[in-house]
């Protein structure tokens, strides 16, 4: 099946010479949740802004649903909903009217029932006649989502949807995103919360300095790049590592009560069996063993560090 969004050799250089994007290519499949991770200024928002028509590209092409976002912008944009990073709403407008206005901009006829349904899903129906300036920050952010959903987009861009929101609201946003996915909406979100990408994304794209370093299935990425840690709790504290264990990447805790062994899950030999045997040979008795997958955060930090 053809990708819903296809980005080919996209680049953007702003006036003044700043290269925000460098030759980015990426296909996004219909119905997936793609999280774009990257540090501030990496080019995430520029990428989204070009796809949505807010920023003009310097080179390359983007198609949405097979329609070029520049040459056939009407068809392309009809498929797209955008939730911007900043809360940008007319402060004196009523919730229902501002959401209906968005629907009209996308050429859709008025549909009070649909707008009410969207507001209800976002727990905003009881605020439909409230002015924006009477709403809390979390509610305003949900109004932005309602505006983006008012014209029934097939692709939804969420630019840092949970930036600066509390934990409860963040989890509520994740739940909204999962529901949208269930309804077949393709979601592309930018975030610098690794936890967010880990919790809701199907695929992770990592951008740094305008370059797409990778875009991979989340599980596969964690499997491929993930390193595991094994913590070996000892029955008796160890003053120093015995000679026969010096070949292992072992770290002794300060108080000597446990050892930490880091290994690559994808390697032919993890060295675990040999290590445990050698520990036994050295007369070290084990109380407990725990393993832990390294987080996306560590993968992200490692990748960005490797970028020249």
């Amino acid at each position: 099946m053809a990708p819903i969004v296809s980005i080919n050799n996209l680049s953007k250089t702003y006036e003044g010479g700043h290269h925000a994007l460098r030759d980015v290519s990426l296909d996004i499949e219909e119905g997936e949740i793609l999280a774009l991770l990257g540090p501030n200024g990496a080019g995430k928002t520029t990428l989204i802004s070009i796809i949505c028509g807010i920023v003009s590209p310097t080179g390359g092409t983007v198609t949405v649903g097979g329609h070029d976002v520049v040459d056939d912008y009407r068809h392309a944009r009809t498929l797209i909903g955008l939730v911007p990073q900043e809360i940008t709403l007319e402060p004196f407008e009523k919730v229902f009217r501002t959401v209906s206005f968005s629907r009209g901009l996308f050429g859709k006829p008025p549909n009070s029932q649909l707008i009410s349904d969207v507001l209800e899903k976002l727990s905003l129906l009881d605020k439909k006649d409230s002015a924006i300036n009477q709403l809390s920050g979390g509610m305003r952010r949900r109004v932005l989502i309602a505006k983006a959903l008012s014209h029934e987009p097939r692709v939804l861009f969420l630019d840092e949807p949970t930036a600066g929101v509390d934990v409860e609201l963040r989890k509520s946003m994740w739940s909204i995103v999962r529901d949208l996915k269930k309804n077949g909406v393709t979601i592309i979100l930018t975030t610098h919360y690794i936890e967010e990408a880990e919790a809701i994304a199907d695929r992770i794209g990592i951008i740094s300095d305008g370059q797409l370093l990778l875009a991979e299935d989340k599980e596969a990425l964690m499997g491929r790049l993930g390193r595991k840690q094994m913590r070996i709790d000892l029955q008796a504290p160890l003053d120093e590592l015995p000679e026969n264990l010096s070949n292992y990447e072992l770290e002794r805790a300060e108080d000597g009560t446990y050892l930490t062994y880091v290994y690559d899950t994808q390697a032919d030999r993890t060295g675990i069996t040999a290590l445990l045997n050698d520990l036994g040979d050295a007369g070290i008795r084990i109380r407990d063993v725990q393993t832990q997958q390294s987080s996306l955060e560590q993968i992200f930090v490692d990748l960005v560090k490797e970028t020249p």
């Binding site: 807010i54 911007p84 940008t88 709403l89 901009l105 050429g107």
Partner: peptide
């Protein structure tokens, strides 16, 4: 006003 408060993004991203 939309430029000032930032809501112009909506005009620019709409099929208009």
């Amino acid at each position: 006003f939309p430029k000032f408060i930032g809501t112009i993004y909506e005009l620019l991203s709409a099929p208009i």
